[in-house]
Design a protein around this nucleic acid. Structure first.
Lengths: 124, 124
DNA sequence: CAGCATCCCACGGGATACTG
DNA sequence: CAGTATCCCGTGGGATGCTG
């Protein structure tokens, strides 16, 4: 940060506010939390909950969230191995946040649509 | 979407929930909204509010948010041109959301730190 | 002042194949 | 079942330089 040799790799400027947002970083993170809100779920269950996500990314996001204390990962050493993910109390506190985003997001998308319509009308 | 020729460019799988999150997409978006919450602000003011952001990105995010109806952009055709950005009512509704994320995020970071300490203790 | 334009890199994420 | 490994691409974003 002090000296920036050419083409600095910009390690992480990130002010405090952005840092907080990293909790919900990753396109699938909110969905994962959402589906876990109904109770603990196994890896494959999450995969069918969110079919579009790849195993790699699902693993990555789950590990991230685990490290952040949003959820817990418990391995059951059964013959077909099974792993269960569950929200921590703290993770559960994210629910209203996500819900709020969904709410406002929905109204914003409607608003944007209307504005587009208006623009089209003006253009005509 | 229907037929996927090899190496599909995966246009945008995005389930509804993720789509809502796109409002807050971009590392600097929450900060921009945050600093606008205290009232309308000019481009250069936002730049000094968030020194780490580049002009390019700031412009990009502002345009995005404008298109989404989160804020308005008003050009004042003065001799030193000045542009003011202001939150829309809808944009202002994002404030509690961001605040909530900050709150939970703060406690999560503390939690993570404690866990690290615990792990270090175990390792020792 | 408030931006575009250009270049270039890092990283998130998809696809596919393989493993304990 | 629940991943890991590899490869590859698109995009977000930083740096620098230029303009109305």
């Amino acid at each position: 940060m002090a000296l920036k040799r050419r083409r600095n790799r910009t390690p992480s400027p990130v002010c405090p506010l952005s840092e907080c947002m990293t909790i919900l970083q990753g396109a699938w993170t909110p969905n994962i939390i959402w589906y876990l809100s109904e109770g603990p779920r196994r890896f494959s269950e999450l995969q069918s909950d969110i079919p579009a996500v790849s195993a790699k990314v699902l693993t990555a996001r789950l590990r991230d969230l685990e490290a952040k204390g949003v959820l817990t990962r418990s391995v059951r050493a059964t013959s077909p191995p099974s792993v269960e993910y569950d929200l921590t109390p703290l993770g559960r506190e994210l629910m209203p946040v996500i819900q709020a985003i969904v709410d406002v997001g929905y109204r914003l998308s409607i608003c944007a649509r209307n504005q587009n319509r208006r623009k089209v009308a003006q253009a005509a």
